[in-house]
């Protein structure tokens, strides 16, 4: 139960983020979650959108380097310790988290967290066994 994330290479230059977001807005693509990883010279914009393929096409036409990668969207109880509970499962399963970020909206009483680990398949199995809610692409589109 993996979902698609779109990543964009950004130079640390004024206006580049704006231009990237404008390119997908023009195509009517809606952003569900986003984060930026940055270094002194460049950044990587990562997004969960309602239509990753369309976003990729729009960004590439606008001259951006993009990549679609798989991540997991996890439902986390919106209370103290909610995220820690999920991370404990991964820790005990000897899985390393590459990065994570949160959705803007909630789904019912749950917050949605995007996860990328060094072993996605194992992560999916462990979380499903533990009864943690994972969101599918269809779930994301209908949010």
């Amino acid at each position: 139960m993996k979902i698609k994330q779109i990543s964009v290479f950004l130079e640390n230059k004024k206006g580049r983020l704006y231009e990237a977001l404008t390119a997908i807005a023009k195509e009517g693509v809606n952003i569900r979650a986003l984060t930026i990883a940055d270094t002194s010279d460049f950044g990587i914009l990562r997004m969960i959108v309602n239509n990753p393929e369309l976003a990729k096409k729009a960004l590439e036409e606008a001259g951006f380097t993009t990549k679609i990668t798989s991540v997991i969207a996890v439902g986390v109880k919106d209370q103290p310790g909610g995220l820690a509970e999920v991370l404990k499962i991964l820790y005990e399963g000897d899985i390393n988290v590459e990065y994570l970020y949160a959705f803007v909206e909630k789904s019912g009483e749950e917050a949605i967290v995007v996860l990328r680990t060094d072993n996605l398949d194992k992560t999916v199995n462990l979380l499903q066994q533990a009864g943690v809610k994972l969101f599918s692409s269809t779930d994301i589109e209908s949010l």
Binding site: Q5, F9, T39, I44, K67
Partner: peptide
Amino acid sequence: EVSKEVFSDEVKSLE
């Protein structure tokens, strides 16, 4: 220039 072929989603790979 970072080409499509070498672009990685992870900061550590780009570094």
